[in-house]
């Protein structure tokens, strides 16, 4: 049996989620006696691809085709499907990010392979194949049975974790030229790369501000703490609606759903819609002046107080720890 892992790269470097997926695949492989094959699309050098072996991949299929430089869902789906057929993959793993969301539904329909997205833990059972996923915006967990032989899963970033590398020798690397249909109806007009910032969807630590921050002029405090912690910045819905911060930073039900290891909510009351976007965070810290604010119901640590006073003190205290 083969588990095919889509290993995504950014600027030629495999992203952390790729290693997380391989770690997951390896655990599944051990239980099902399968091999783990990594699929890489793009210009990723051999040294980088070799790293996949440390986490459990025994084989890498790499595709470096100019025509795949732009993410055209249809093309990509054809290519991944072709590789899945060629490798006879029974389980296909992708990250639960924009790439995974773009490709997996089409892939599922093309391969008639049952898809479950946002799977945060190992399967409950393999025969029948049952996985857990959060539903109803995190208010319930469903046990979903995949009825087809071939299965597709997506994993949220930071949910499973990367299992420490061990040297596993060299993977077999195959450079592959897909035979996929290459017609495209989309043209790139412009691209705005986010390079200087930690991506919110992947960040291990997120510092987030709400209406309690009072105004966009106070975001320096959020950014300072985020910089110190190597964290991404986020905000609640009213903040993006008011135009204090871009919509891309809105975390919550209709915004981004994230699962960082640490989420620091500053001046966020914790409306149910907001909590829907952060409830999978491993640790939540809340700073809010209202002792009754619902954010404290989901927080692990909290400070009841004026965020404008507390935040600089917290930043100072963390700085002292970092320097020590």
């Amino acid at each position: 049996m083969t588990i095919l892992v889509y290993t995504e790269n950014r600027e030629g470097r495999l992203i952390k989620a790729a290693f997380e997926l391989i770690s997951y695949a390896k655990e599944v492989a051990q239980k099902t006696n399968a091999r783990v094959v990594a699929l890489s699309i793009g210009d990723v050098n051999r040294d980088e691809l070799m790293k996949t072996a440390n986490y459990g991949a025994t084989r890498v299929v790499t595709i470096n085709d100019e025509k795949l430089s732009l993410m055209d869902n249809k093309r990509y789906i054809s290519v991944v499907a072709e590789v899945a057929e060629k490798e006879q993959a029974e389980i296909i793993l992708l990250p639960d990010n924009t790439t995974g969301k773009a490709l997996t539904p089409g892939l599922s329909a093309k391969l008639k392979a049952g898809l479950v997205s946002g799977v945060a833990s190992l399967p409950q059972s393999y025969d029948p194949f049952i996985v857990k996923k959060k539903v109803y915006s995190g208010k319930s967990i469903a046990n979903v049975k995949i009825l087809t032989d071939r299965k597709i899963l997506t994993l949220p970033s930071n949910s499973f974790g990367v299992i420490e590398p061990e040297s596993n020798g060299e993977p077999q690397i195959e450079e592959f030229t897909p035979d996929a249909d290459m017609e495209s109806k989309i043209n790139l007009v412009s691209m705005n790369k986010v390079t200087d910032k930690i991506l919110l969807s992947e960040a291990e630590i997120v510092v987030s501000g709400g209406r309690g921050m009072k105004g966009p002029e106070n975001w320096g405090m959020i950014e300072e703490l985020a910089g110190l912690l190597n964290a991404a910045t986020a905000c609640s819905r009213p903040v993006s609606d008011e135009g204090w911060r871009p919509h891309s930073e809105h975390v919550g039900q209709t915004g981004k759903v994230i699962a960082p290891n640490l989420y620091i909510a500053c001046g966020i009351s914790g409306a149910i819609q907001h909590v829907a976007g952060i409830s999978s965070s491993k640790c939540i810290v809340a700073i809010n002046k209202d002792d009754e604010a619902p954010i404290f119901d989901v927080a692990d640590y909290g400070i009841v107080g004026d965020v404008q006073k507390v935040l600089p003190q917290l930043t100072q205290a963390i700085k002292a720890i970092k320097e020590a």
Partner: peptide, 26 residues
């Protein structure tokens, strides 16, 4: 369908929040 929702469960409640006084960010 390709999948079946077999059953549901309620997510385990989070542990109670540990609150610190305002002056104790440290």
């Amino acid at each position: 369908p390709l999948t079946e929702y077999v059953s549901y469960e309620v997510p385990p409640p989070r542990e109670a929040c540990r609150k610190f006084p305002e002056e104790n960010a440290k």
